[in-house]
């Protein structure tokens, strides 16, 4: 066998170095959201996403979602990003949305829901995508027609389209039907009598109240531990691959909206909730309102249930502006 000459050695060394660089950057990108010390949260905003009358631009929202997914996963396409987050072609993915329209409509925009379904369909069949909320009337008022057929994206009401799991006290949409979950909240401020300022954000924890039984749902209003523990229930904890929050239209006081024009994405529910809270607080500061504090359930969720972190030093907040 001939020994390699000097130029071949140099060429080989350069090639090896390039391969290692690509490999390590790929690994870093792939795992940064999942195992680094910091939790990554991405916010993507665009002045074109929604106008001041609430008309959403589907093409712009699609670009925002893809950009957010790429930034979160380090992958080149939305399909690869979903796979990195854990989605597999045979999964049935349940998306818990919050369609409470009282007093102003802060339900997820149908354009964003359609874009999300389209993006997920790069991995799973459309009929394996299940958007759900607790009440059928709320879904319909938000513009989502119930679909429990074997064609197209499904829209289900937990209260009437499924039973409740006896062990977890959750809708069977989350415990049995779906193999993966997305916690899709709306950026909303609500009245909360126990908070220092009588307001707090209603985000990913409160969104999942809609997965509870009708008897258990009211317990969340005066029991911070009960609320914190919802995301620690096995099906929600093990199946949730993404926490997504729409702030295309949001509220910074109860019943007072503004068009923030952005979305928030993160794997860590606490970090994502923390960033969403800061988005609300930036607006509250502009409006000379006292910033919202961290609610007790967040501390409990971190210290007792180990669901993530809402410590700013453990959060990498990536702000993308279009």
């Amino acid at each position: 066998m001939n020994r390699p000459n000097r130029s071949e050695i140099i060429r080989g060394t350069v090639t090896l170095a390039l391969l290692l660089t690509v490999a390590f950057s790929g690994v870093r990108a792939a795992v940064r959201t999942l195992s680094e010390a910091k939790s990554w949260v991405i916010t993507v905003r665009s002045p074109k996403a929604v106008d001041n009358r609430g008309q959403a631009d589907a093409a712009e929202i699609q670009a925002m979602l893809e950009q957010g997914l790429r930034a979160l996963s380090g992958k080149a396409t939305a399909g690869e990003a979903w796979m990195t987050l854990g989605l597999k072609p045979k999964d049935i993915v349940g998306v818990k949305i919050n369609c409470n329209n009282w007093t102003i409509n802060l339900s997820p925009q149908p354009e964003l829901v359609a874009v999300l379904a389209d993006s997920l369909s790069s991995v799973v069949p459309l009929n394996n995508i299940v958007f759900y909320d607790m009440h059928k009337a709320d879904l319909e008022q938000a513009g989502f027609k119930r679909n429990a057929t074997k064609n197209g994206v499904r829209f289900l009401a937990a209260e009437t389209d499924a039973r409740y799991d006896d062990r977890e006290k959750l809708t069977e949409i989350a415990t049995s039907l779906c193999t993966k979950l997305i916690n899709f909240a709306s950026l909303k401020t609500v009245y909360e009598p126990d908070a220092d300022e009588p307001y707090e954000a209603s985000l990913h924890f409160k969104n999942q109240i809609g997965s509870l039984t009708a008897e258990d749902a009211p317990k969340c209003h005066d029991d911070a531990d009960f609320l914190a523990a919802i995301l620690a229930r096995p099906s929600i904890r093990q199946k949730t691959i993404l926490n997504l929050c729409t702030g295309l239209r949001a509220s910074y006081k109860r019943g007072v909206p503004w068009y923030w024009g952005g979305i928030i994405l993160g794997v860590d529910p606490l970090a994502t909730e923390y960033v969403a809270l800061q988005v609300i607080n930036e607006k509250r500061t502009l409006e000379k309102a006292k910033p919202l504090g961290l609610s007790p359930y967040l501390t409990i969720a971190e210290t007792k249930y180990g669901l993530g972190s809402c410590l700013p030093e453990k959060i990498e907040w990536v702000r993308l502006e279009r």
Binding site: N100, W102, V190, P193, S202, A214, C220, H221
Partner: peptide
């Protein structure tokens, strides 16, 4: 909550906002 009507109680209607 103590005396729900045909469609339930205020928490079913407006979630935690019913407290006030």
């Amino acid at each position: 909550r103590e005396q729900p009507l045909k469609d339930g109680d205020i928490f079913k209607f407006i979630d935690g906002g019913g407290v006030v």
